[in-house]
């Protein structure tokens, strides 16, 4: 496996798109989907990309403020604050290509996971702020082997993943699914899908 590096052809394509209308691509999926590795690969390749999803820091802040775990009544407040951060990320991008570490409709997955209905703010934002392509990373771990022990946590993580996917369908997207593979191979797949040069091979696809 080659490590992702800056590719001249890809850099040229990104530069060429830099002054054009914004193109927003979401990378999402449940925990254990390899999202962080892919985001790192995208950034290493010099492609504009959100580094951390805003939810992490907001979550830490909420935990610190509450001094305990989030309860149902806290989770709407959390998801609204995350939504605001995602909207700011969205509207802050004016030109060229940018990848997003999760997107606004991930909020549907969060709400559904906790048995909460989506907020009117989320529904409104999902209609107004539209992304161009959604890439869903399917989980790296599979539990198809009947001999595998599936921990409660692992089961729940799979459930989270499916609820995130449903959130994007609910928001009117047709996500592109990215099969489990190395971060490099996944990034190549994504670039091929977007008609961008594949950084892993240095060749132009499509």
């Amino acid at each position: 496996m080659t490590s992702p590096t800056t590719d001249p052809a890809l850099t040229a394509a990104i530069d060429a798109a830099a002054s054009a209308d914004p193109r927003r691509y979401v990378v999402t999926g449940g925990p254990s989907s390899g999202k962080d590795d892919l985001i790192a690969a995208i950034r290493t390749a010099g492609v504009p990309c959100m580094e951390d999803e805003p939810g992490r820091e907001i979550y830490r802040k909420h935990r610190e403020r509450l001094g305990r775990h989030l309860r149902r009544e806290d989770r709407h407040a959390y998801s609204l604050e995350v939504l605001e951060a995602f909207i700011a990320e969205y509207t802050g991008h004016k030109h060229g290509i940018r990848f997003y570490n999760r997107g606004i409709p991930d909020g549907y997955g969060w709400d559904a996971f906790f048995g909460l209905g989506p907020t009117p703010q989320l529904e409104h934002a999902s209609r107004v702020y539209r992304y161009d392509v959604i890439f869903v990373l399917d989980p790296l771990d599979t539990f198809e082997d009947p001999d595998d022990i599936v921990w409660a946590k692992d089961r729940e993580i799979r459930r989270v993943h499916e609820l995130i996917v449903q959130g994007y369908y609910d928001a009117g997207y047709e996500p592109v699914f990215v099969a489990p593979d190395s971060a490099q191979a996944r990034f190549d797949f994504i670039c091929a899908n977007l008609r961008l040069p594949k950084p892993g091979r240095g060749v132009r696809s499509g």
Binding site: P31, G109, I157
Partner: peptide
């Protein structure tokens, strides 16, 4: 994983 969903899911299992 450093991910709010993973944190919640893990804490869920802790409570369970």
């Amino acid at each position: 994983q450093p991910d709010p969903f993973a944190w919640e899911v893990t804490e869920h299992e802790e409570h369970l």
